[in-house]
Design a protein around this nucleic acid. Structure first.
Length: 503
RNA sequence: GGUCCUUUGGCCGAGUGGCUAGGCUCAGCUCUGCAAAAGCUGCUACAGCGGUUCGAAUCCGCUAGGGACCUCCA
């Protein structure tokens, strides 16, 4: 099957994937902060890594997929006040922080199910691992890389950088990080900045201001964990000091993942991650989707179409397909036009797939068209090749689309099924199934699986057939036209049959 | 200001130095009672300039545009 190559953000090269424990793969993906609703941007990493997860399993690996829920909330260091996001909003909404966290966690799980993503094997919460985080911070202090100031603990980046390559992952130069005001604009006064020995140092533990609801006792007083420590602590606990894959959005490269490396390395005496995998952003009008840009489309809005930027509602599978049509390391620009293109493309692909599964093998001579047979075989074998080349779902889909006309022609009997060899035909069926259902995890968009509806449709189809046979086109057209108004399309097939689909 | 990335046909997008990516749209044709679907055909691009090369969208340089990160961020 060839070997899997993945692009490692750390080395900036494609590397052969070779797991630490043969037969097993450990993967950690940064999960959502459940202080608000997920938006279209969030769909990308979770769908991307869902496909990676599924593909690793397809390759035979036993995968432990850990994806955290950040329910402690990252404090904001916006110059004004350091505040726990979640507790802040909880006060406004007059509900318990736990209630809020539960609400958005449920909503997140619901959206992920809509996208047909598999749940991770472990989904740890930050609040459930305070003890581990404190333990890790203690180890870092003991090693001499953490220092305490006024009930907060910071990581000594300069000291770490003396013996380690801080900044390698994100392509940063420490001197630049140490220089204040390098941004040209106003120099922000970071919260707790004056406490740090250096500008580049980051918090491991923050003292909680009196108004903070979420707070935990620690050796340094009441407080809450720093932004990066939860991932280090939970990844270490469930995947070990060194594990195979760490994933997340590119925007997490710095400072989040860079700091994770530093913390874990000091604590566990080994660099934590073998392969760093980062997905690129979804943009809207060329701009990253994000709160600060005011261009967020929430997933609930996307599914309902209830947003000024949306021309209509989009099915979760359309989004999934849309995302898989491009390589995960490229930016993906949102537009109604693009999404509607995906919608039609998916429909065509899926109908082709359904046609393929219904094709009977026949019992004539096989492999009557050797040229076609080898072409199909080549396109099919490239599925694995493309996936092994850093998960190039876009190219696999392109090949599938090249095969659709062949499939449809076999269905229309323009090309006999037996043009292919028996093995090729069976491979065609099985590869499509494996890739579309098991790896890409796409599903039918239309609601044709309702038994009662199917019964009613069969009745109407029979009546229409009778009418057509009697050349009673008034009746036959009436049936077709009125169904069309209801959003159900009837199609007269070449073999005299009639098929239907729901728009 | 620093670091990095990017610029592909009407739209979205893949891309290895030499071979048609693919999808959507559009046009024509075939099939069809009509329609839809399907099939076939066409629309042949690589920001600009210069360089390397037998040959570059693909390598190098410059110019211009866009973006990301440097702050919470998928």
């Amino acid at each position: 099957m060839g070997e899997l190559k993945v692009y490692n953000s750390y080395s900036r090269e494609k590397e052969v994937f070779s797991p630490i424990t043969p037969g097993h793969a450990g993967m950690y993906v940064c999960g959502p902060t459940v202080s608000g609703e997920s938006h279209l941007g969030h769909a990308r990493p979770y769908i991307t890594f869902d496909v990676i997860y599924r593909y690793l399993m397809q390759l035979g690996y036993k995968v432990r997929y850990v994806r955290n829920i950040t329910d402690a909330g990252h404090f904001e260091e916006e110059g004004r006040e350091a505040e726990d996001k979640i507790s802040k909003k909880a006060i406004l909404e007059k509900i318990e922080p736990m209630e809020l966290v539960q609400k958005y966690t449920n909503l997140f799980h619901w959206a992920m199910a809509q996208f047909n993503t598999l749940p991770p094997t472990i989904e740890p919460t930050a609040t459930g691992h305070i003890v581990e985080q404190i333990g890790m911070i203690e180890a870092i202090i003991k090693a001499g890389y953490g220092y305490t100031v006024n009930g907060s603990v910071y990581f000594d980046v300069k000291k770490y950088a003396a013996s380690h390559d801080y900044g390698k992952l994100s392509g940063r130069v420490l001197d630049d990080l140490l220089t204040a005001g390098s941004r040209g604009e106003t120099t922000r006064e970071l919260e707790g900045q004056e406490e740090k020995r250096d500008r580049a140092d980051f918090a491991l533990w923050k003292k909680a201001a009196p108004e903070h609801i979420m707070r935990w006792k620690s050796p340094w007083g009441a407080g809450y964990p720093g932004w990066h420590i939860e991932c280090s602590a939970m990844a270490t606990k469930y995947l070990g000091a060194r594990f195979d894959i760490h994933g997340g959005g590119m925007d997490l490269l710095f400072p989040h993942h860079e700091s994770e490396i530093a913390q874990s390395t000091i604590c566990n005496h080994i660099a934590p991650v073998r392969y760093w995998i980062h997905n690129n952003m979804i943009t809207i009008d060329g701009r990253k989707m994000g709160k600060s840009y005011n261009n967020v489309i929430k997933l609930t809005e996307l599914f309902s179409g209830d947003h000024p930027l949306l021309a209509k509602a989009y099915h979760p599978m359309t989004i999934r397909f849309f995302i898989l049509q491009t390589h995960y390391r490229s930016t993906l620009d949102f537009s109604n036009e693009a999404l509607q293109g995906s919608e039609k493309g998916l429909k065509r692909l899926w109908e082709g797939y359904e046609n393929l599964q219904q094709l009977a093998m026949g019992n004539g001579q096989w492999a009557s068209d050797g040229e076609l047979d080898s072409k199909v075989l080549k396109l099919l074998s490239e599925f694995d090749e493309f996936m092994n080349d850093d998960f190039n779902t876009a190219k696999v889909l392109a090949n599938m689309f090249e095969l659709v006309p062949v499939i449809n022609s076999m269905k229309d009997k323009t090309i006999p099924v037996s043009a292919l060899s028996k093995q090729t035909f069976e491979l065609l069926q099985s590869k499509f199934k494996t890739y579309l259902e098991d790896i890409f995890a796409l599903k039918s968009v239309s609601e044709t699986d309702n038994a009662k509806l199917r019964g009613v449709m069969q009745l109407l189809i029979d009546i229409r057939k009778e009418a057509k046979n009697k050349k009673d086109f008034v009746t036959s057209d009436k049936i077709r036209n009125q169904l069309q108004q209801l959003g159900i399309l009837l199609k007269d097939e070449k073999d005299g049959g009639i098929s239907w689909s729901v728009e």
